[in-house]
Design a protein around this nucleic acid. Sequence first.
RNA 1: GCCCCCGUAGCUCAGUGGCUAGAGCGUCUUACUUGUAAUAAGAGGGUCAAGGGUUCAAUUCCCUUCGGGGGCUCCA
Length: 647
Amino acid sequence: MSSQTGFDLFPDRSVVAIRVNGELKDKASTVTETDAVEPVAIDSPDGLNILRHSTAHVLAQAVQKVDPDAKLGIGPPVTDGFYYDFDVAAPFTPEDLPAIEKEMDRIIRSGQRFQRRVVTEDEARAELAGEPYKLELIGLKGGGDEESVEVGGAELTIYDNVDREGVTVWKDLCRGPHVPNTGALGAHKLTRIAAAYWRGSEKNPQLQRIYGTAWPDKGALKAHLERLEEAAKRDHRKLGKELDLFSFPEEIGSGLSVWHPRGGTIRMEMEQHARKRHVEAGYTYVYTPHITKKDLFVTSNHLVTYKEGMFPPIVMDEERDADGNVTKQGVDYYLKPMNCPMHILIYQERGRSYRDLPMRLAENGTVYRNELSGALHGLTRVRGFTQDDSHLFVTPEQLEEETTKVLEFVISMLRDFGLDDFELELSMRDDEKTKWLGSDEFWEYSTNALRHVAQASGLKYIEVPGEAAFYGPKIDLKTRDAIGRVWQLSTVQVDVNLPERFELEFTDRDGEKKRPIMIHRALFGSIERFFAILLEHYAGAFPVWLSPVQVVGIPVAEVYADYLGEIVDRLRSEGVRAELDVSDERMQKKIRSHTLMKVPFQLIAGEQDRAAGTVSFRFRDGTQDNGVAIEDAVARIHEAIDTHAQV
RNA sequence: GCCCCCGUAGCUCAGUGGCUAGAGCGUCUUACUUGUAAUAAGAGGGUCAAGGGUUCAAUUCCCUUCGGGGGCUCCA
């Protein structure tokens, strides 16, 4: 019986590794006739990871060539690319990258083989004596997810980079697999520099991380870079400024937004639509204050579990004597980081019966969270934001049915906003005993309920053990936007903790007092963040119903302003956001400005249209529809608004 | 919060250890009244983020603070 390698079985160079009995291995591995062997192509998900991880090795080798004192951290593949962490005397600067890139190119051209070698722990320690972080990893063998790239296998392995003369020029502790040689690597580009804590903990030293992107060929790399450019073009922070939608005045503070008239109009339209649908679905709106005495968050336990996310307290009514001794105890007030405790107080305001349930409270509640300054990002990560928050109080029997309704409601609402590519993530508890609150029965029951809901939705869904909140399982809904990015939006969480802490009750039909279950539901999550996502999804060209200005009238010359003005006035009286541009500019200039501001309908009229009793459309994409009868034009505009159409 | 980078007119950006800091767009004024992406001329607009230091002299060099960007961490 002869043994073969992956090279014998798959001579095709685009096969960079093999899968043997389900396990990824180097192409040079030997297999027997009884093994199930599959090729791993460079453009498959596994192949791309191998390509990127191998490119990370080349980066590390290049960095150590340029700076022999650089100590290695880890270098795994990530979405679209890879990174490698280094401990270096001075942080990298952007000027360092060209030299590193050049060295990487040289390494790749030199045609090194990636050669796997099994070592004992003692051998590894001896060989890597100069790499303190690698030594630490050896001690952690079989550890966490990221480290597993280095040492996750059953045995310790080192990958040698061997040049054409057979000389080992570099090596790294690594589980592999790798591409056979640097010739198999495609196109790469180093993208940015950052600091990152060793093994992801703030308590550890900070290493310098270099990120890169890598693809099977130049075309794929180019396409990726173009996608990045497209994403940058529709960055909501840029569009927010260009379209005059919102800003973050320094005087107010970072992470605190103000909404300009145009942005405010879009937001108002979003909120109005959502309100209407909530009311139709049996929710009632409540209003609660922005601050509260300390005790509420003591009872809810947020001052223990969420304290570092809260703004420091406002101390009220404290009095002191001349010596500074407190003579009258003050009261601490906190800005609310969550709405739930206040909604619970509304539930508790009187005794509740099973007849009151399910009780669906909704609020656009503005909350304040003391986010780390470095974590802030445009409207997606802020310190003050408004949750479209709902809390549903249900009996255990109602849980599954109500959760189903909630999920259907969420999906249907998101569709109203033009999103239609969803997937679900069911977060469950894991086997770790102490972490989770509530009985086994509760977890089993509620997790099953959510699972049924997820299955019934027909959407793609995955289950992630260990990701649940400590008080119950949850379903998160993710959506894919127009350029393929995935955002987590809605979340539906089952909670027995707060009902317990606040001793919530309802009287059941048998006269017994029982405890309701709470469902926390955020639909948009944060209105600010959802707005940002929509803004990027549409690249600023909102569907007509959301557009701040829906129609702008542009007379060919001043004398036609009256004729067009009548049409614009009529639209306004019918609730359309229509304006007439009577400024001194040329019509061409007006068309340009309003197109840049992404107004969906430009109505143009001159002598021809006035004489015929018609009007001419011009759209954002430059297309036209001339000589449309006024009645038809008006009907067309209304229809686009009513159907939430994109034009 | 931590590491790196950055902050000049409303916006996008030039520029300088020295004299009055510039451009384009936007704004205002005037003239022109035009059929599908920029009419022309003129005017106004700056404590060069703020505070401190070095210097004969600081927007420029240094420090601190504030703000922004890319990451880490965290998360809606």
